[in-house]
Simulated assay, not measured.
Amino acid sequence: MGLVAPQELVVEHVLPPVRALIARRLADRDLTQQQIADRLGVTQAAVSQYLSGDPPGGEIAGHPETTAAVESIAAELAAGDEYAALADLLELIETLEDRGPLCTLHEAESPELEGMSCDLCVRGPDERVAAERETLATVRKAARILAQTGGMAEFVPAVGTNVGSALPGATDPIDVAAIPGRIYAIQGRVEVPANPEFGASRHVARAILAARDVDPAIGGALNLATRDGLFAAARERGIEPLAFDADHEDHLADLRDALVDRGSVPRVVYHPGGFALEPITYVLGSDAVSAARLAADLVVATE
């Protein structure tokens, strides 16, 4: 077998076309060649070549996962979110490696691998690390959904909002990833101040855990300010919001009791507020992205 590592194929066959495609998307967003170079970590001359040559072709450039990733990465780089862009690039590479087109290229470089159901790129994963990485990525995607939804800023509570996603088998708030410092509305837009961390939101985490006690399929949640039209939008989608008491000091324990009494978990629950306590609506989902998509749908429907 020739000693050709899969990583060599990434450098040769993946990074060049992906960089070229991202450069073109950034140029479409009116970034200068030097700005594009700074974001991609290449020279301005390299960017000039990316933009002046023919668009990249081949199986890697034309793969649907590549197309989707390029769009996300370009948007993240344009917004200055290099961490999210790098995470999406790594996720793309893993997808292409996991019995994707890189396997075909690897077999062409090392014919001895053909027909062996090779698992070099996916062998022996650390399942806990993989789950943590996926959970953090889910919260990043959910936060982007909130930030990109028109009108969402009007539904950010005075105390701020947060969005969380739980690890499989989560039993403690430290098992739930969320945004440190919460998400705030600033000048009519949603501001996400940091990348997600585990244990970053006690309230959203405890709402998820309370719901999971009744329905283990629940893995994500976010909190919104209660505004006119929100519950009507939920009912139009077949969701009957559930109220729970907020008078008790531990009102999220009251949420669990209300869900136990009901015997099921609706995707929208709320408390009407209390002394020095703002009325809050929680939107639940299978993960943070599921909750964020439903919240976005409800918010847009109230306009």
Rank of each mutant, 00 (worst) to 15 (best):
N195D: 15
R189S: 13
A200M: 08
E191A: 13
V204D: 06
R206M: 14
V176D: 01
E191L: 13
I183K: 08
T171S: 14
Y184N: 15
G169R: 02
I179V: 12
S201K: 04
I174S: 15
R189K: 13
A194V: 04
A177E: 04
H203L: 14
T171F: 11
R189W: 09
A205D: 11
A200R: 02
A200Y: 04
G169P: 00
R206N: 15
R182I: 08
V192H: 02
D172P: 06
A177Y: 01
A205M: 11
F198K: 05
V192Q: 04
H203Q: 14
P173Q: 00
A185Q: 04
G188N: 07
R182Q: 11
G188I: 05
P193R: 05
I186W: 07
G169H: 03
I186D: 12
A185G: 13
V192I: 12
V176Y: 02
S201I: 05
A178E: 05
A205V: 11
P193G: 08
Q187F: 12
I174A: 15
R182M: 07
R189M: 12
A205P: 10
A205N: 13
H203E: 14
A194W: 01
D172Y: 12
F198M: 10
A185T: 01
A178M: 08
I174N: 12
P196A: 00
V192L: 01
G188F: 01
Y184K: 14
I183M: 06
Y184S: 15
R182P: 05
I174H: 13
D172K: 09
D175E: 05
D172V: 10
P173E: 01
H203N: 13
V176H: 08
I179K: 00
Q187H: 14
P173Y: 00
N195M: 10
I183P: 05
N195P: 08
N195R: 07
F198Q: 04
R189A: 15
N195A: 15
A194T: 03
G181E: 03
A170R: 04
R182T: 11
A178Y: 02
V190T: 07
I183Q: 04
A185L: 05
V176G: 00
I174E: 15
I186R: 13
S201G: 07
G199S: 11
A185S: 10
V190C: 11
T171M: 13
N195T: 13
V176C: 02
A178N: 07
A170K: 01
R206E: 15
A194N: 08
P193S: 12
V192W: 00
T171G: 12
G181T: 07
A200Q: 09
G199N: 11
I179T: 09
R189H: 11
P173M: 03
A185D: 07
R202W: 10
V190I: 03
A200P: 12
F198T: 06
S201F: 07
R202C: 10
G181F: 08
V176K: 00
A205W: 03
